[in-house]
Design a protein around this nucleic acid. Structure first.
Length: 928
RNA sequence: GCCCGGAUGGUGGAAUUGGUAGACACGCAGGACUUAAAAUCCUGUGGCCAUUGCGGCUGUGCGGGUUCAAUUCCCGCUCCGGGUACCA
């Protein structure tokens, strides 16, 4: 009987379903372990071999933990809302719910064939009302809370209101959009409407007019993490800045906690670094510059207060409100022209034309609070409205942007910092600003002679005392825009009364997504939901027509898995206090600044509410690398239908053509399949080398257009799921990106057949012996157990697979068929190749699934050696090996080496200076 | 520009704490079995030199350094990948 993977895999996949092998429930008797995969967006293309890489790794870890006595939560679901389904709906008129459901079914089918140990009873789909009920619920809660900077947590907005009623804004420190200050009397005299408008300034979910990334092609706004290089991440469409009234989440309030939390979690350094950069904390000072002959003031943020004597002009962002106020009548026309001109530039142009200096003088002057000098105020788009205060003090000598600007407009460039070991220079000869992070202050009044850090300290002290400014921390992280002008997303639980937003009652949730006649904006340009009939409350108030963005549904899904059927709350106390947090999260780095930041924010908010018991949701995170495509090429001789093999192509004038990698094996073209692949090639002729047609290859992105997409189904059919699992792991380190290359897959498949033959003879008879195993056999087994444990624990699955190969090769040469050895071996291989091990396990007479077997304990006694093969080196170069008893001491080893014949040959005529002996490891003889 | 990774045979990769570089696998070459093929098994396989035997030299992107000993640590570069950017 041969290893019939098709039959075996089908059999066990059915067995696992029938026996609910992977169903998991709360069990206080056992320690919990939560292994999570980033759930997929079910696209129309189905899974390709890159997707399961992380799933296989997490599955191995889950099974490993289960065999070690843990109660393992290992769920899967779908991030089902999203743009592609809607785009498709627009084109075809098909309801996105239907295409999404179809795609999910396809994904599920593909995943089932790989033999994952998911508890499918816990499946979630973000587009189902039972699920988004809790997305909407969380939104209402955010609306009803504000962030208290002193308590460093979210508190009910009612507490803020109570404070306002008694003391106004006095003595309270809330996170806010705009710094407001009013007395209790002022608050109490506000109208109800005014109060509600004012409160939006504090709510964690709030409505505001903000500059948004508007993507005309997608007809929606996008969050910062959905935009890259001025184009949408999805589709690559241009994005422009637009002022719109939008829902936002006050993520910035949690900036400090998001930053500090990174120190407590086990994520890769690079990922933590990406998040740190994205949060972008910078300490500095906020300073006030008075405007000459005016009551107005300019507020700026700087990290380099020490360079204030080097300021020769001020710059406002074009979007700043001060621009209008500060522009003198004689300059107004010019300023307005400039604003018009910058408005026209898209974000993309603004970024690509970084070097192009532009700006306009307002006609106003500011007064340097320290030097009392009058300095001109300019407007330029190199200053961003969204960061700091939207205004800067320009220090041209020590900032390259300010330098370029000063040069372009002939503004003075005084040097104020001299780098260590240098003399003050003539700035008119400079081609760029000079670095000023270290050095000594000059031309700076009372700061002269101080070092940079001393000067920063002294200036900050001075401006605080004089009330010119204050020390301030700024963040790059901005609040997340939460509205999308699209159909296929969660509806907001919001209605409007007199233009003011109100939340639905919790008992009215979920607010289900309505049907619409078309998935397009209305004539008036309103989002698709405005087409829905009866889209208002019982009382007739209109409901919100925006929907939530993609990251809404993925921000708390890991909590829902703990208690997926609960219709009273997101997750019960009981379930949350048992499962707590995700112990291992595996997914791609592409979510570093989106999902992984938002869900940490979302979780921290729920933590503040007391709904979850952990401040950080994902204890350990591992990024799997991307699987790239490996394309194959054929070479057609120009003007013919003749194809020449790779190594002969230089002799002809050829054209490189992509060929479907599925009809190429080990770079060898299946000529018949090629002829059938495309009618154009039906009569193709070939120039072969050694009777074969060899294809060229290249590493490219896996995509349909390059014909290099490989589906897991194809591999499963040809080699089986166990081979696919082993091979994806064997390909290399999990975290590394690598091309999919099937050239080595025969090796792992051959390995599984060897395993099979250890159990069955040629006639399919089980050859299992109950004889006592030899010391040698035990040594092989226990060496493998130890290696496997070490490798799994450090996510080095590729070396674990090779240790299995070594083990099987060794047992083969020992002709070992002893139950004592093979049974534990099956258990340690089970996480990697669950089907074949189940089958063999059953053949050994077990009636229970191998999933519930016990992990064999490593016994070091079997590893003890009586002799050591010492490598003997001379001056660090290994020359020969010397077998010595393991229990002799250093002196004895030295003596043994010195009298060894080969050692004598190497030391002949030379002086032995030293002999280094690391017992059990190495001997190194140092000779002159 | 800045930050973070990485570079090892023809290929994917291994070497976990500074201690035998190239495990394991693919590919290739040769051989066994076979009428033949497939499957399977055996041998060899970093490079150069010597191959009549032992063997010798060299080698982990490049150039230095530390050390008895460096793929591993330090300094300086080159190239590749990722993140990020008029962030004041």
């Amino acid at each position: 009987m041969e290893y019939n993977f098709n039959e075996i895999e089908k059999k066990w996949q059915q067995y696992w379903i029938d026996n609910k092998t992977y169903k998991v429930t709360i069990n206080p008797e056992k320690p919990k372990f939560y292994v999570l995969d980033m759930f997929p967006y079910p696209s129309g293309a189905g899974l390709h071999v890159g997707h399961p890489l992380g799933y296989i790794a997490s599955d191995i870890f889950s099974r490993y933990k289960r065999l070690n006595g843990f109660n393992v939560l290992h769920p899967m679901g779908y991030d089902a809302y999203g743009l592609p389904a809607e785009q498709y709906a627009i084109q075809t008129g098909q309801h996105p719910a239907i295409t999404t459901e179809n795609n999910i079914a396809r994904y599920r089918g593909q995943m089932d064939k790989i033999g994952f140990s998911y508890d499918w009873d816990r499946e979630v789909k973000t587009c189902e009302p039972d699920y988004y009920h809790w997305t909407q619920w969380a939104f209402i809660k955010m609306f009803e809370h504000y962030f208290d900077n002193d308590a460093k947590k979210a508190l009910p907005i009612t507490e803020l209101v109570a404070h306002f009623e008694k003391k106004g804004t006095e003595g309270i420190n809330p996170a806010q959009s705009e710094e407001l200050s009013f007395t209790a009397k002022e608050w109490n005299s506000k109208s109800e409407k005014d109060k509600l408008i004012t409160l939006l300034n504090y709510r964690l979910a709030y409505l505001a007019d903000t500059m948004v990334n508007w993507c005309p092609a997608l007809g929606t706004v996008l969050a910062n993490d959905e935009v890259k290089d001025g184009v949408s991440l999805r589709g690559g469409h241009p994005v422009e800045q637009k002022l719109m009234r939008q829902w936002l989440l006050r993520v910035s309030a949690y900036a400090d906690r998001l930053l500090e939390g990174l120190d407590t979690i086990d994520w890769s350094d690079s990922l933590k670094e990406i998040q740190r950069n994205w949060i972008g904390r910078s300490e500095g000072a906020e300073m006030v510059f008075k405007v000459k002959d005016s009551e107005l003031e300019m507020k700026i943020f700087t990290t380099r207060a020490d360079t204030i004597f080097g300021v020769t002009f001020m710059v406002l962002a074009p979007e700043s409100e001060l621009v209008q106020k500060l522009s003198k009548p004689e300059q107004l026309k010019e300023v307005e022209d400039y604003l018009e001109q910058t408005k026209k530039r898209t974000e993309r142009e603004r970024q690509t034309e970084v070097k192009k200096v532009s700006g306009v003088f307002t006609g106003s002057y500011a007064i340097n609070p320290l030097s009392k000098e009058e300095i001109p105020i300019w407007v330029s788009d190199y200053v961003l409205a969204g960061y700091g205060t939207g205004a800067i003090m320009a220090v041209p000598a020590h900032d390259s942007r300010d330098f370029a600007f000063a040069r372009a407009f002939n503004l003075p460039i005084p040097q104020v910092v001299v780098p260590k070991g240098q003399e003050p220079g003539d700035t008119s000869t400079w081609s760029d600003s000079i670095d000023s992070k270290e050095g000594t202050l000059i031309n700076s009044g009372f700061l002269n002679g101080l070092s940079v850090p001393e000067a920063i300290e002294k200036t900050q002290q001075y401006i605080s005392e004089k009330g010119i400014g204050k020390i301030k921390v700024n963040y790059r992280l901005r609040d997340a825009i939460f509205s999308r002008q699209r159909y296929w997303g969660e509806p907001f639980p919001v209605y409007y009364k007199d233009g003011i937003p109100y939340m639905l009652n919790e008992d009215e949730l979920p607010l289900e997504l309505p049907e619409v006649d078309k998935y397009l904006p209305t004539e008036k340009g309103e989002p698709p939901l405005a087409r829905a009939k009866n889209w208002h409350t019982k009382e007739g108030y209109p409901l919100e027509v925006n929907t939530m963005p993609g990251f809404a549904g993925s921000s708390a899904y890991y909590l829902r898995y703990m208690d997926p059927k609960n219709n009273k709350e997101l997750v019960s106390k009981e379930a949350n206090s048992y499962w707590k947090d995700v112990d291992l999260y595996i997914g791609g780095t592409e979510h570093a600044t989106g999902h992984l930041l938002y869900s940490r924010f979302w979780n921290k908010f729920l933590y503040d509410l007391g709904k979850v018991c952990k401040d950080e949701p994902f204890k350990k995170l591992v990024n799997q690398g991307m699987i790239q495509g490996r394309s194959n090429f054929v070479y057609r001789i120009n003007g013919t239908n003749k194809f020449v093999s790779f190594n002969l192509k230089d002799q002809y004038d050829t054209m490189e053509i992509h060929v479907d990698v599925n009809i190429v094996h080990n770079d060898m073209l299946d000529i018949e399949a090629f002829r059938a692949w495309n009618p154009e090639y039906h009569d193709a002729e070939f120039i072969l080398e050694n009777g074969k047609y060899i294809c060229g290859w290249a590493i490219e992105k896996m995509s349909k257009s390059m014909f290099n997409v490989v589906n897991p189904d194809t591999i499963v059919e040809e080699y089986g799921a166990d081979t696919l699992r082993l091979y994806e792991m064997f390909l290399g380190p999990l975290e590394q990106s690598k091309p999919w290359d099937t050239n080595g897959i025969d090796g792992v498949h051959k390995f599984l057949r060897k395993v099979w033959r250890l159990f069955f003879d040629r006639d399919g008879k089980l050859i299992m012996s109950d004889e006592k195993a030899s010391a040698e056999e035990f040594k092989v087994l226990h060496r493998t157990i130890k290696k496997t444990v070490d490798d799994i624990e450090r996510f080095s699955f590729n070396t674990a697979v090779s240790s299995f190969m070594i083990c099987i090769n060794d047992l083969n040469s020992l002709a070992c068929n002893k139950r004592e050895i093979l049974e534990p071996l099956l258990v340690i291989m089970a996480p990697f190749a669950p089907h074949i091990t189940e089958e063999l396990w059953q053949n050994l007479g077990h009636s229970q699934s191998i999933c519930d077997a016990q992990w064999p304990e490593f016994n070091p006694d079997y590893m003890v050696e009586s002799v050591v093969q010492y490598p003997v080196s001379f001056n660090g170069k290994m020359r020969f090996k010397l077998e010595l008893p393991a229990d002799i001491n250093t002196k004895e080893i030295e003596a043994a080496v010195l009298k060894d014949e080969q050692a004598i040959k190497w030391t002949e005529g030379k002086e032995i200076k030293k002999i280094i002996i690391v017992p059990g490891k190495i001997i190194n003889v140092v000779v002159a």
